[in-house]
Design a protein around this nucleic acid. Structure first.
Lengths: 182, 182
DNA sequence: GTCTATAAAAAGATAGAC
DNA sequence: GTCTATCTTTTTATAGAC
């Protein structure tokens, strides 16, 4: 369990932020180095290529999802409600890694696409015991995807149409009724 | 109602396809010209800059959505069922324009983001009379977003986890029960 | 309307000093 | 571990012939 170097982590943070805020186009090596507070050479010491930088981000998502699955299955309000509530991004490390990896997948990175499918399967596996049937499970997954998608559209710059507070509670209750079988 | 030049349209088609398949990074002027069957100079006659090319795509979405709204309100199976069914992309011109514009929005194009919000509002306006309340309406919109998001992830290269056929029918029935008030 | 040629800037990557 | 300097390729855009 060697803790990774500070500079390496802040470069990776910066890369994710650039992807989320302005997309793959803006997340250049140069911009990432500047945002991460190192020079281009400094960045390249930690990540020998653009591909290595992308792979490290994908791997970070993998680790964060493992922790998230544990939180889902142990949630007090129940796995489905917790899962839906946490789909409204609060800009935590998991949200950022997930949205940034989506950007990479849309840019044609095959490993990013494969990781996103893996993440979805792990979530489905954790929630399946709590849904009446596969249709109900898909409803939960699709509402979650919809919540993520909307929040991710502008990189969080615009409020967006995603329900908050009491509206979100009502939505979760509605999905729970439908998914649990009424 | 002047019909636009053939070359102009095929360049715009090619640009959308590149955005969908490989993201903003790959949708360069050069690649777009080649895929559209013209030279770079030919492209630049029709679209004086990258920004003009992007604006034309956003405007095309605007027009296609107007036609879609008419189809939604007049659908035989009901607006909500029709809307959800058409959210599973069959790669028609509207689907392509929508996903391509999403790529532009994620790349930081403000006009693309504004257009996507406008599209969502127009859809909500068409469906609102057919939902019990705002929570039910949001459920329909979010499931639709989830369907689009999943199909768009790999540019359609990978089958993806989106329900088809009988599974899709069951999902639509479930959402209809929840949205119409059981 | 469509082409080729080319300029100007930005991208990823390498070399080597400190 | 981090830096500057530099190389190569790609990208956007311009100029002007046909």
């Amino acid at each position: 369990m060697s803790r990774p170097p500070r500079a390496r982590e802040s470069v990776l943070d910066a890369f994710a932020e650039l992807l989320i805020a302005d997309g793959e186009r803006s997340a250049t090596m140069d911009a990432t180095a500047r945002a991460g507070g190192v020079s281009k050479g400094g960045l390249l010491y930690h990540f020998a290529s653009k591909d290595a930088l992308e792979s490290a981000l994908i791997e970070r998502l993998d680790e964060l999802v493992d922790a998230d699955i544990a939180a889902i299955v142990g949630a007090d309000e129940g796995p489905v409600a917790y899962f839906l509530r946490s789909s409204v991004t609060d800009n935590d490390p998991l949200d950022r890694a997930l949205i940034a990896t989506s950007r990479l997948a849309q840019g044609g990175n095959a490993a990013a696409g494969a990781m996103l499918r893996s993440v979805r399967e792990r979530w489905e596996g954790a929630l399946r015991p709590h849904a009446r049937d596969e249709t109900a499970l898909q409803l939960v997954m699709l509402v979650s995807d919809g919540l993520y998608f909307n929040n991710a559209l502008d990189g969080g710059a615009v409020p967006g149409p995603v329900p908050q507070g009491a509206e979100l509670d009502a939505l979760i209750a509605l999905v729970l009724r439908a998914a649990a079988g009424l």
